[in-house]
Design a protein around this nucleic acid. Structure first.
Length: 581
RNA sequence: GGUCUGGUAGUUCAGUUGGUUAGAAUGUCGGCCUGUCACGCCGAAGGUCGCGAGUUCGAGUCUCGUCCAGACCGCCA
């Protein structure tokens, strides 16, 4: 090693020692007669001192060091006369005796500091400089810790980590595939896996009854703050298990991670059915850090002469505690919020429960004080509260009220970053109707098993069939999901038929899996957790980008290496490809 | 595919109703300074106002188009 110590470890106990440090020049403070330099490496910052009286030549040379120069310095650890309690190494400094410039540096385009002056665009372009900054470093350290603890836990539960291929084949279901042209088989393509789904099921057939992998997955869909074209999953599968076994095992993983990484004991891990989640929160990933559950008001609100309610399929409200003093302006803002195209509500009905126990509402014309009192009773509202009511088609109205509920949660600061409320959402529907293609789609994926008691409805009333499928949700973020799979060839065939596959198509796309099911496939099931999202959640951020060393932007572009990019004509020819303008 | 927000000095931003030579902070460079740690003081350099058209006597400012970035809707088994 070129160094004897790191820049984070020297303290009062090292006084008098001769040490050699390496690192980057964070900042220099030139006082004329003496110069202080903060030397930074991954482990911390240590102050170097150069003194004109002691060594004018060395000090003069040090005064010329620019930011981010890489140097190696040798000197003696000394106690500071002016200590800095703000830094871990603040009690000591290195009285420099010699140094070498290992590499010079151009002045970086933004400051390498916790609160940098650099914008996102610039930081992404110079990501290797951004990664020098503490906040990003801490995020990657967090990611590292969570991956290590995940492996520790799953290893202790007898899981095998097994790698699966990246060059696989394109399948019609699900997200768009990233595709890789084959040179040796002109006109043919590999696809990158959207997940190792079929491979892990084959591993179950092979008898590896507890598998996991921290694995990259690829989906060619439009991006968001919490979605990258390539992302990492904690992918798991187990054999000879019930849904209950899987929920318990991964509840255990979540609790282990919260305990070991954040020092938090998760007491409750409630389970809620998909139907209840939709009814009470209007979302299949409810944020249960706060209450404000939906209360349906059809029986109290309909047929009272208010045409909006009368023609609505659903009238549903929430009670916002302590918001009864909202001004007209604030209420108008909430109305604007729900009327935004992304939210899609037509309007908002409010009922203020005044401190004097009277009511003031936007529907006073249709509902007297007595009627509004029954609303308040049902919503559990108290004087000083504000009831917010939406009406319309069931799905749309629930979706809009979900957004409004989360907005009120934000306004009332009920969604603290340090509070973690996980839950399982279970009993998802097996299928959902797709308006565009006019056919049933698998809500989870085509290998998800229906609940035995619902199998009879598969052909007669497919929408009614519930699946052995579950999602892990924390703080309103879908962290992952899974299911008990189909392990029977005939049932898998029926599923493919439901999804509109001909026998030939099913055989062509998934024949390898159905064939495998003929050789003693054990009952099995599993789960995949979004690792990036989990890390971001632990770090208290909505965006996963700062937890990935080299992320892509919201157009799927890596602005540092400038990809994607064109390839040469030679490469195109070799692959038998032609670009069509 | 759509909606919204933004693009001005190396960087982060301000820029009035369309009107003189486009400002501040920070960074950079030079000078001074022996206990700084957001060092301080003095000085200097630094601008395709994203790009292109249009309106106007006159555009950083208004209009249209376009590119880039970000957020969201659709999409994401």
């Amino acid at each position: 090693m070129l160094r004897s110590h790191t820049c984070g470890e020297l303290n009062i106990n090292n006084i008098g020692q001769e040490v050699t440090l390496t690192g980057w020049v964070q900042k220099s403070r030139d006082l004329g007669g003496m110069t202080f330099i903060d030397l930074r490496d991954r482990y911390g910052i240590t102050q170097l001192v150069f003194n004109m009286e002691l060594d004018p030549g060395l000090c003069g040379k040090a005064r010329k060091l620019g930011r981010e120069y890489v140097i190696k310095v040798t000197g003696k650890v000394a106690e500071r006369s002016n200590k800095n309690p703000k830094m871990p190494t603040g009690d000591i400094e290195i009285i420099a005796e010699s140094f070498d410039i290992l590499n010079e540096s151009k002045t970086p385009p933004f400051t390498i500091e916790d609160k940098t002056d650099g914008g996102d665009e610039l930081r992404m372009k110079y990501r290797y400089l951004d990664l020098r900054r503490n906040p990003v470093k801490r995020n990657l350290e967090l990611r590292h810790k969570i991956s290590i603890e995940t492996r520790k836990y799953l290893d202790s539960e007898q899981f095998f980590e097994i790698e699966t291929p990246f060059l696989i084949k394109s399948t019609p279901e699900g997200a768009r595939d990233f595709v890789v042209p084959s040179r040796m088989h002109s006109g043919q393509f590999y696809a990158l896996p959207q997940s190792p789904q079929t491979f892990k099921q084959l591993l179950m057939v092979a008898g590896y009854d507890r598998y996991f992998q921290l694995v990259r997955c690829f989906r060619d869909e439009d991006l968001r703050a919490d979605r990258q074209p390539e992302f990492t999953q904690i992918d798991c599968e187990m054999s000879f298990v019930t849904q209950e076994d899987i929920l318990n095992t991964f509840e255990g993983l979540a609790k282990h991670l919260f305990k070991t990484v954040k020092g938090i004991d998760i007491e409750e891990f409630p389970r809620i059915s998909y139907d209840d989640a939709m009814r009470l929160y209007g979302s299949d990933k409810p944020d249960i850090r706060f209450g404000m559950e939906f209360v349906e008001l059809n029986d109290l609100a309909k047929e009272k002469g208010f045409v909006v309610f009368d023609k609505a399929e659903l009238v549903v409200g929430i009670n916002a505690p302590g918001c009864g003093n909202y001004s007209r302006k604030q209420l108008d803002k909430l109305t604007d919020f729900v009327r935004k195209p992304q939210i899609g509500a037509q309007g908002l009905v409010y009922v203020k429960y005044n401190e004097d126990s009277t009511f003031k509402s936007s529907v006073d014309k249709f509902f007297d004080q007595e009627a509004l009192k029954t609303w308040a009773a049902k919503l559990g509202a108290k004087p000083g509260d504000l009831m917010l009511v939406l009406a319309g088609a069931t799905d749309k109205t629930r979706k809009a009220l979900n957004e409004l509920r989360l907005e009120m949660g934000n306004r009332l600061e009920l969604r603290g970053k340090d509070v973690f409320k996980p839950l399982w959402v279970v009993d998802f529907p097996l299928l959902e109707w797709d308006e565009d293609s006019e056919r049933w789609h698998a809500m989870h994926h085509p290998f998800t098993s229906p609940k035995p008691e619902d199998i009879g409805y598969m052909e007669t009333d497919p929408g009614k069939v519930r699946a052995n499928a579950y999602d892990m949700v924390i703080n309103g973020v879908e962290i992952g999901g899974g299911s008990i799979r189909i392990h029977n060839k005939d049932l898998q065939k029926r599923m493919f038929t439901l999804l509109g596959f001909s026998d030939e198509e099913a055989q062509d796309q998934f024949g390898f899996l159905m064939n495998a099911f003929e050789y003693g496939a054990p009952p099995h099931g599993g789960i995949a957790l979004g690792f990036d999202r989990l890390v971001a959640l632990f770090g208290g951020s909505d965006s996963i980008r700062d937890y990935i060393a080299f992320p892509k932007n919201n157009a799927g572009r890596d602005v540092m290496i400038d990809s994607p990019s064109g390839i040469s004509q030679e490469q195109l020819d070799e692959l038998g490809l032609k670009i069509v303008e």
